[in-house]
């Protein structure tokens, strides 16, 4: 296990380094932030001064060198627009996105797994057809449209839930989250549903496929021959086998949910990092974009690591493979 963690850590550093290079060059190629930041009527001298103060007059490799040097000291640069450290800006908004994503993911699992089980255990019945058709809708309706419909139905027509913004934030055991207040929850529900609808469909289909693949296997029949109850067979024997593909996909999806919560955050004016990213790209606020991508990549790496650990907990064959 220790060897595994160390190897993983070294790999992660390599991935981060490569990402940093690609992102930095990519962002450099997008355009010149000076055009956006400096008033059109500024004099050439003022212009040169601003460019010099931001370090934009130096060649790419020197800018990159400075960035890396500072990054190693924990400084990912200051936002051109806000003139505050970009990492602070991101960390301020990260909790809102994390909260939205994790809540959405839980919804996807809580709704998706039972429906997938029902579907898989009763294949080709009316119930199965209804669930499957519903999941096709979840897959195919565009997320932004779903979001607008949710607002229209629950905020405009029924007036049950607020349509925009993050609600009151409560505190429990030192964690700040809108999960702990009623107002916060009310604000959270619609965007979380919007974010999770696609994932619900995915989880339903994964679970259903898993059940359908596992049920005909010999060990299920053997479990029946042992006289086990149907509950024990489904929830222990079959479910533990389904968990393996489920964890893989959920891990990947969690990363993409975090990174691409942008659409949902824009529709519901959720003050998360997605919105910050869009704004920063529009303003060519390089340090924020670079810092954002690095944070997301780190999160991806972390999630993958957690997935691998979960794997070894669920699947004994993986566990032993590492030890040898």
């Amino acid at each position: 296990m220790t060897v595994f963690v160390i190897r993983r850590f070294l790999q992660s550093i390599a991935v981060l380094a490569v990402t940093a290079i690609i992102v930095f060059i990519g962002v450099y190629a997008i355009g010149d932030p000076a055009e956006m930041l400096i008033a059109p009527d500024a004099s050439a001298a003022e212009r040169a001064q601003v460019v010099a103060s931001l370090g934009l007059d130096k060649p790419l490799w020197e800018q990159f060198g400075t960035f890396i040097w500072n990054a190693l000291h924990g400084d990912l640069g200051r936002s051109f627009v806000f003139n505050r450290p970009s990492i602070t800006l991101i960390l301020e908004r990260l909790p809102a996105t994390l909260e939205l994503t994790l809540f959405g993911l839980c919804l996807a699992l809580i709704i998706g797994i039972p429906l997938g089980l029902i579907s898989g255990l009763n294949p080709n019945t009316a119930t199965d057809e209804v669930i499957m058709t519903g999941s096709i809708l979840g897959f195919s309706l565009p997320s932004f449209w779903q979001g607008m419909m949710l607002i229209m139905i629950f905020s405009v027509w029924l007036g049950w839930l607020p349509s925009t913004g993050r609600g009151q934030v409560g505190e429990l055991l030192g964690i700040h989250s809108s999960l702990f207040t009623l107002d916060g929850l009310k604000h959270l529900i619609l965007p979380a549903i919007n974010l999770s609808l696609f994932k619900v469909s995915l989880v339903i289909r994964l679970t259903r496929t898993g059940v359908r693949e596992t049920m005909p296997l010999d060990f299920v029949k053997f479990a029946r021959a042992k006289g086990l109850s149907e509950n024990r067979i489904v929830f222990v024997h079959v479910f533990k086998n389904i968990l393996i593909p489920l964890i893989t996909v959920i891990g990947l999806e969690l990363g993409s949910m975090l990174a691409f919560a942008v659409v949902t955050e824009t529709i519901f004016a959720w003050p998360g990092i997605g919105k910050l990213l869009i704004d920063s790209i529009m303003r060519l606020d390089r340090p924020v974009v670079v810092a954002y991508l690095l944070v997301i990549v780190s999160l991806f790496i972390f999630i993958n690591f957690v997935v691998d650990v979960l794997y070894s907990l669920v699947d004994p064959r993986v566990r032993i493979g590492e030890a040898s």
């Binding site: 010999d218 053997f222 024997h237 533990k240 086998n241 393996i244």
Partner: peptide
């Protein structure tokens, strides 16, 4: 059963 490789649940 016939195939001992398949009759035991691999994750238990």
């Amino acid at each position: 059963f016939q195939d001992p490789m398949m009759t035991l649940n691999p994750v238990l």
